[in-house]
Write a protein that binds this DNA or RNA. Structure first.
Lengths: 253, 253
DNA sequence: GCTGTTATGCGTAGACCATACGCAGAACTA
DNA sequence: TAGTTCTGCGTATGGTCTACGCATAACAGC
């Protein structure tokens, strides 16, 4: 977590302060042989290649040709490194909404951008997040999302709530999708066969009398057709945006 | 993950089959000194008391007065134990909707039930879930949720999607809430002071010119008032249900 | 240029963790 | 009674994070 408090408020770990550019190198002592960004980049490279589980301090150090313990001069703990990895992994935010976009078009574009990041870097979903965002790029994403709601009749608190709602949805959807992908790889099943296999398994386990609704869903073959995962994403997103739209209309009227 | 496949489809790990009551004790050999449920209960007890991080095989074994390796006669791996812990941790599902409830009232009650479970057992959120539910109680929750949508004009696939949307929202909301609680404990800050402290920290970090929308939210004091977390939950849930309602109306009309 | 201060790189070691393997003995069948 | 099979679990392997302390490098001030 972030934060001990002193008179000037909560205090950031050194490595995160340096991500904000708030830290100058002390004039004395030997020149550092590495840098926080180099370490974070190496860790991200490992995660991209072999998944988050492969990210150990020794593996990252090896990637850099350094000794394990050398890293601890730059990051306070592995948790801190993970936080910085998330910031780098998300990358720069997609930018403010285009001028011609209304709030819905803007948020949709924003949502797809996050969706795309999580699709390409599913290890981001496995990082145990331990608090609200405090790193520069993540706050950039938040800023750009909030801007989409500029000009709506929502209160500031409501804008934040809406954004939380949407980003939560995106993460959740991405988590489910990546679980299917990882599960199919682990079981050696074609990704397209994963949900049908799951459906058959559940059908064998449940008694129709005790699980009538579930049985009906399975009988309808819902899990057998492998529809485009993007359709599923669009479905949920549209439901949520419909709900937000209803709220905005109420506030406007 | 679940599943190797043979002719009869995916196959369950033994301990999970036994959770479905599909396994009789072999007639030979010494009588087992423990049981899968006893192990799972002990693990749940540890998680309830000291969090998921405290759940190690040796700690669970100690809880039972057994040797670490003895557990592996009952569960195939720690992952399997975690899966069973989730099933036990969720507990029995809240039951089918009351007859007088419409879909919205039913789903609202269902959502609050899951919300309550996750509030009391926040370690459930930290279990890395590795696939769709295959344990009895979890499928019971799914069944009861689906039943709330019986009688609506939604297709079976849409019902499932709606349920996924809602349960994802609940988990997400609970995750955020528990992060605040855990963060405040870790930092030694009053829970009610957590978000204000976060607000002050971000306000110090960001330049208003580069983060105008975020700055506006902070200036509005959104994070300073500690509103009832239940209100936040209600807000998001109502947004989503509004969206679902719009869909149902469209399908009906 | 010398000395004191401070930071870096990193080796060692400790405290955990999951779990593969194999053996002794218990409880059943034939 | 002999054979089979399953349980309990001791031992050992290889992995994790990270606390600590030492040698060395680079600067500041005299």
């Amino acid at each position: 977590m972030a934060a001990k408090t002193d008179d000037s408020g909560p205090v950031l770990p050194p490595a995160i302060e340096s991500a904000w550019g708030l830290r100058e190198r002390p004039p004395k002592g030997p020149r550092p042989g590495m840098s926080v960004p180099a370490i974070v980049d190496a860790a991200v490279r490992v995660a991209d290649a072999d998944g988050l589980a492969a990210v150990s301090m020794s593996r990252v150090a090896k990637e850099l040709g350094a000794a394990t313990m050398a890293l601890y001069r730059y990051v306070g703990s592995k948790d801190e490194l993970l936080r910085l990895m998330v910031d780098t992994g998300y990358g720069p935010s997609p930018g403010p909404p285009a001028p011609q976009d209304d709030w819905r078009a803007g948020l949709t574009r924003w949502a797809w951008a996050e969706h795309e990041v999580l699709r390409q870097r599913s290890w981001l979903l496995h990082v145990p997040i331990s608090g609200p965002p405090i790193t520069p790029q993540l706050l950039g994403w938040m800023e750009d999302g909030l801007r989409c709601l500029d000009g709506t009749a929502l209160g500031e608190g409501e804008k934040m709530s809406v954004l939380l709602l949407i980003t939560g949805y995106i993460r959740n959807e991405a988590t489910l999708t990546s679980q299917i992908a990882e599960g199919s790889r682990a079981a050696g099943v074609e990704p397209s066969e994963m949900m049908p296999a799951y459906g058959r398994l559940v059908a064998r386990l449940i008694e129709p009398a005790r699980f009538p609704a579930l049985h009906r869903v399975l009988s309808a073959g819902v899990l057998d057709q492998d529809d485009d995962p993007d359709d599923e994403f669009t479905f949920g997103l549209d439901r949520i945006l419909d709900g937000v739209e209803a709220l905005i209309r109420r506030r406007s009227g």
